[in-house]
Write a protein that binds this DNA or RNA. Structure first.
Length: 493
RNA sequence: GGCGGCAUAGCCAAGUGGCUAAGGCAGCGGUCUGCAAAACCGUUAUUCCCCGGUUCAAGUCCGGGUGCCGCCUCCA
């Protein structure tokens, strides 16, 4: 089956055809480095991480470019507030961004260019636009002239009259048209600046993406992505700049991820509901956050709340419980001596066929515009099938069993590699989850363990009343016990 | 005011013309267990916001209505 992508430019799902057979160039707008990353950044990062991971498992050679805006008004503001150089701000937040992304299991893009390191390219590009009559300089500022670029508005589906009628664009006497946007901004006294043919200044926001995508991916590349808020004006402006300069399409497919809402409200500074990634990760395992986001389609809005993360946690625990059972079953088996290989029974063939079928369906879901929600449905079906298998395996010859378990493991590895989950050893996951939950609830491990020991002693003397009393006591702390032949394990719910 | 999106069970969420409307969470009944937990089996939407229409056939297409949301200003 072929890859399909919903293209914002046409508002349709299209069959993906890369410019170069077997290779994909993708550019995603990264962060402006002036504050720590929040859930919204995390979603965009995870969405495109999965896109790139999946395309790679499909055999594409992917060049993934994600930029850092490291010079911008907000960065300068912050630097002024703290009384430090702007580079100190941008470097600090780039570093924190990288830590957050690593924690989320987001793979590092192929190239992560910074705006300040591409001044020459930007200035050259502005020069071309000026020469071709698409840009004009007023008093040290350079603006892109919308009226000279007839296709303006193509991506967002707006026309000039409508936008002017919208009349919410800022008033600036220097601009010929209120929708014209800055390519180059004259610097004020004391502001960071770079020399240019138009005098000292710094680049406008949009030009960096045009310059850097061109440098690393060429004049036309396959996929351009970002958050849906970037459609207008950022991506519209990028298209105008790049296409006016080259006369060629900028990108063939435009992908935009939906927003993260917080308890059904828009996340915004004024509402004070910004959730930084690092705060969330103190309370939840990173894969929980990933799973939560991947359970919705990437273009839909997703509503972040404590309860939805708690639900995602239960779902992930379901998966890791099975992964752990699978691991134990395999370990137990490898300790046994392998008898001679037998033919598969009809029942065993049935398992193998079903696993194969689920793996195919998983890929088909991702082929269809990266439908991770549907793909996860198949992951959970695989969990159930694996549980069935583990319950059934007693009747199977060891060698056949080993083969089927290995097939199941391989499928989970594939799911995990694409979605960036199941990347922990199962026991490790439960350990880490337990630590997080204990910290969150301020519970003490020693106390719990000591109660469990007392209960164990009571059980040995068959003092069920006492054992149950302790179980009840722990249940009040949301601790659920699981008894096995000779010990008791526990988990926090 | 302009442009766009969404509305599916108690909650979250796939499905965009055709077999029994995925999956997760929560709940209930059962198997297992000293009791539990996990797992498994069964169960929880005669119906997809409302009203019309197209069609042999609609959650899925078209028209109208209602409600919610996003963008148009920096924003993932």
């Amino acid at each position: 089956m072929s890859q399909k992508i919903f293209n914002t430019a046409t508002r349709k799902k299209e069959v993906f055809k890369p410019l170069k057979e077997g290779a994909v160039g993708i550019y995603v707008c990264g962060i402006t480095a002036y504050d720590v990353c929040h859930v919204g950044h995390a979603r965009a990062a995870v969405v495109f991480d999965v896109v790139v991971r999946y395309l790679r498992t499909r055999g594409y050679q992917v060049t993934y470019v994600k930029n850092f805006t490291d010079i911008d008004d907000k960065i300068i503001d912050r630097a002024n507030k703290e009384g430090v150089n702007f580079t100190e701000i941008s470097e600090r937040y780039i570093k924190l961004h990288n830590e957050d992304m690593a924690a989320l299991g987001v793979q590092t893009p192929t190239v992560t260019p910074k705006a300040t390191e591409h001044m020459e390219e930007m200035i050259a590009l502005i020069g071309v636009l000026e020469k071709k009559g698409y840009a004009y300089c007023v008093d040290g500022d350079v603006y892109f002239s919308i009226s000279n670029y007839k296709q303006y508005g193509g991506l967002s589906g707006r026309n000039l009259e409508e936008m002017i009628a919208g009349a919410r664009v800022d008033v600036n006497d220097k601009k010929k048209n209120p929708l014209d946007f800055a390519l180059w901004k004259k610097s004020k006294e004391g502001e960071p600046s770079w020399g240019s043919p138009w005098g000292k200044g710094r680049p406008g926001w949009h030009i960096e993406c045009s310059a850097m995508s061109r440098r690393y991916l060429g004049e036309t590349f396959d996929i351009h992505g970002g958050g849906e808020d970037l459609i207008f004006p950022h991506h519209e402006n990028e298209i105008a700049q790049s296409q006016a300069a080259t006369g060629k399409p900028l990108a063939n497919y435009w992908m935009h991820n939906g927003f993260v809402k917080i308890n059904s409200e828009k996340m915004s500074k004024s509402l004070g509901n910004i959730f930084p990634v690092r705060e969330i990760l103190k309370k939840y395992h990173p894969e929980i956050l990933r799973l939560f986001m991947l359970q919705s389609h990437y273009r839909s809005p997703v509503d972040y709340s404590e309860s939805s993360l708690a639900e995602a946690r239960s779902s992930l625990i379901r998966c890791y419980t099975t992964l752990r059972l699978l691991k134990y079953a395999q370990e137990k088996l490898s300790a046994d001596i392998m008898p001679i290989m037998k033919e598969f029974s009809a029942e065993e063939e049935n398992y193998i066929g079903k696993f194969k079928d689920l793996a195919d369906k998983f890929d088909a879901a991702l082929d269809d515009d990266f439908n991770t929600a549907q793909a996860l449905g198949h992951v959970f079906d695989t969990v159930r099938l694996t549980n069935n298998l583990i319950a059934d395996e007693k009747n199977m010859p060891a060698s056949n069993k080993a083969e089927i378990l290995a097939a199941a493991k391989k499928i989970f590895d594939h799911f995990g590699a694409v979605l960036g989950i199941f990347q922990n050893d199962a026991d490790q996951f439960f350990l880490s989850d337990k630590e997080t939950e204990l910290r969150k609830r301020g519970l003490n491990v020693e106390e719990i363990e000591s109660l469990i020991k007392k209960r164990q002693a009571a059980r040995e003397t068959k003092d069920w009343a006492r054992a149950d009393a302790i179980r009840k006591e722990l249940a009040r702390l949301h601790i659920v016990l699981k008894d096995s032949a000779n010990d008791t394990s526990w988990i926090i719910e």
